[in-house]
Design a protein around this nucleic acid. Sequence first.
DNA 1: ACATTAAGTGGTG
DNA 2: CACCACTTAATGT
Length: 198
Amino acid sequence: MLIDLDLLRAHGGTIHTYDSHDYIFQIEETPRCYYQIVSGDVKLNYTNEDGKELIQSLLTKGESVCELLLFVDHKYPVNAVTMSDCTIMKVPKVEFLHMLDEHPRAAIDVRTYISKTLYQKFIMMQNIASTSAEERIKGTLKYFKSFFPDKTPFSYEVKLTRQQFASITGLRTETVIRTLKKLEKEGFVKIEDRKVYF
DNA sequence: ACATTAAGTGGTG
DNA sequence: CACCACTTAATGT
């Protein structure tokens, strides 16, 4: 949990519930609130000029949603879409900023969180900049698993659908499917009941 | 049982 | 690889 819920509540925070596939905010909207996921999964996405969805990042409980936009004067560059039923703590921007002034600990946590996610962005950018689909997928798998404590082979199950995986790597779902099968033959991943283990 | 979504296959450019 | 067409498997109501 990035910031204690009671602290957020004490600064104007309120709980909101969303159904799966709801928009928390959309591209071009002006950021006015801090959002912290209490439960559920959220994706940040946008549609490219070809009409293809590209996922910028995946967020889960405890994380905040595009909080960095509260520190700069820009509109949202992505949509925030729920991927499941969600409950989210929402705090008005002004009160959130006041809270950071009054609680250095929270300010440090936010700074650390932003740094961490920015670092992850660097890693993903390098993965996606790879020329071959195989390297992109390998890199993305390693990236995902890096967040899990169990480092033993095939201990990590990819929870994403092939389609979502494609939207993250910028590849076609057919390419993801075929490459994944190729990686299975190479022993890089294991596939059981259509589930991918790495 | 029927509709919908995801996985998988073949073939073309 | 992307893109298109289509089949098969899995899920949902």
